[in-house]
């Protein structure tokens, strides 16, 4: 195995890292004009998070439905009942978890939950439902509805991390060397004093 082969392998890995990276899961939501809500889970490189278990909770925290994202990482829900800020929590099979919030019956998804949540008396609780993903295919010729926002490669964070690693390691090494020097001094002093006592 030559050095050049190792260097080529390292370069290929770095190039792959520059093209795409992913690990944490992200999510977004959009309230449609017809009252349905599109939820979508994805990874920072733009890969949809498929088959992710999703729990949708009403503004009062009650579970409204559970489902799974489809091949495009999407799940469409039709909120019923309370107006206010709803929460969708996505839990992946590898321990990834994220959530997104959307406002139902309020001025729009960008606004805070201004609409006062209705009480249980005024809004009947829908029964808990186990649902399959209720996706709504886009009409023929219409642009595909997509909430995925690919994140740029975090160059600044990588540089900050490397700076922290080497900076802190230098500090740590200085502290340990100081401790070693003190121990050496103490042992030298001990040896000298015992030698003096011996004389």
């Amino acid at each position: 195995m030559s050095k050049w082969a190792c260097l080529c392998l390292a370069a290929a890995l770095l190039a792959a890292g520059g093209e795409a990276y992913a690990h944490k899961m992200m999510a977004a939501s959009r309230v449609r004009d017809d009252g349905t809500v599109l939820l979508q889970a994805f990874f920072p490189d733009g890969t949809p998070a498929r088959g992710v278990r999703t729990e949708v909770r009403r503004p009062d925290g009650a579970l409204f439905l559970t489902g799974q994202t489809d091949e495009a990482g999407r799940l469409t829900v039709t909120p019923e009942g309370l107006a206010g800020r709803w929460t969708a929590t996505f839990t992946g099979s590898m321990g990834h978890k994220t959530e997104t919030r959307f406002v139902v019956g309020g001025p729009g998804p960008e606004q805070p939950a201004a609409a006062a949540p209705a009480t249980e008396d005024s809004a009947p609780q829908p029964a808990l439902r186990e649902t399959a993903p209720r996706t709504q295919p886009a009409p023929e010729g219409a642009p595909t509805e997509d909430l995925i926002r690919e994140q740029p490669f975090p160059v600044a964070e990588v540089l900050a991390g490397l700076g922290l690693i080497f900076g802190l390691s230098a500090v740590l090494m200085c502290l340990k060397l100081r401790r070693d020097i003190r121990q050496l001094k103490d042992s030298d002093e001990g040896t000298t004093s015992s030698a003096t006592e011996g004389k």
Binding site: L14, A16, G17, Y21, H23, T47, G51, G92, M94, H96
Partner: peptide, 12 residues
């Protein structure tokens, strides 16, 4: 940050 597509999930 080196991402490897792994079927239904995302691995690195």
């Amino acid at each position: 940050l080196v991402h490897v597509p792994m079927g239904p999930t995302s691995a690195h």
